[in-house]
Design a protein around this nucleic acid. Sequence first.
DNA 1: GTGATTATCTTAGTCACTAAGACAAACCAC
DNA 2: GTGGTTTGTCTTAGTGACTAAGATAATCAC
Lengths: 173, 173
Amino acid sequence: MPPVATKHAALIHALNHEGRQYSTAVVVFHHAVSRRLGLNAGDHKYADILMRSGPMTAGKLAEITGLTSGAITGIVDRLAQAGWVKRIQDPADKRRVILTPIHHPKKAKEVQAVFGSLITAMGQLSGSYSDTELALILDFMARSRTILLEQAVQVGAKKKPQTARNVKRRRAR
Amino acid sequence: MPPVATKHAALIHALNHEGRQYSTAVVVFHHAVSRRLGLNAGDHKYADILMRSGPMTAGKLAEITGLTSGAITGIVDRLAQAGWVKRIQDPADKRRVILTPIHHPKKAKEVQAVFGSLITAMGQLSGSYSDTELALILDFMARSRTILLEQAVQVGAKKKPQTARNVKRRRAR
DNA sequence: GTGATTATCTTAGTCACTAAGACAAACCAC
DNA sequence: GTGGTTTGTCTTAGTGACTAAGATAATCAC
């Protein structure tokens, strides 16, 4: 990118860059937490959805995540094996499986241990900001997020059919 | 999570939540852009590293990304096939391969088309903020990012050896 | 020159996914 | 009720992107 002309433009550019870096940091943190809890990053995310939203059918989770039913089967296998969720047959419709988060005190303690120091550190940071400032930051991030999602849709709509798959490996040495 | 006691605590909680959602939005946007450019999200990221940092050896890219040399081989195969980079043998050390980003006007135009409207939209948003405010937001995000990365290291240090791999699929019906 | 080291590629195996189909349960005529 | 269709989940086969370990060629140390 070429050097920018005004301070305002420079700030916008820096925010764009920071947005990406921030996102990467969230992903890195999330990944570390997942490993710590004995899950891969994807499964952790899905477990989180279940914990937040409460019991739901396998189909509902597939819908929320956009994954196929086959993928959900594998995810639930792993989460059940690791003791985070239970499969319960719906008595009202025996085809359905209700995925139920298990609230195990030991696991809750582990989660607490992992997030506790983040919450403390973030609390310390935000302690140096006024409520007005925090609200401003929150609002900006929410607005930026909306723009990103809108743009993603717009970019996706113009999406090219071809992706980099089926590339035959052929290389000169 | 239980309802929080103070406005300040509520804001911290909201920022934590927003941080995650923001990160997801960045990932979604990035994914859409990648698809639009005929790459998968990972390859796009690596191409971006090359474009920003300029030519480097395959080994250097492996080091930066933390991937194995075998993975780099595959990534460079795909990027080269799609016309984003070239492999050039280092004349000074014929073992080495220098990965060189290709600056193709047509591709540059594509990239411009994809990011142009994001930049416009973000410009409009940040137009409603003063430079002081933008600087505040930028600073907060950078500090949060630092905390996240520190916490990731800390969480990782206590990491359990076992992960959810090698789970034998066994399930009652 | 010979041996150890280095940089990349290759091969074999793994993991999380998709697509398509199997199968039981539920729904819907009639 | 019975028969055909639809629905919800699981199974199977195949793929893409990775890792680990080893092959290969070039370089370095002496």
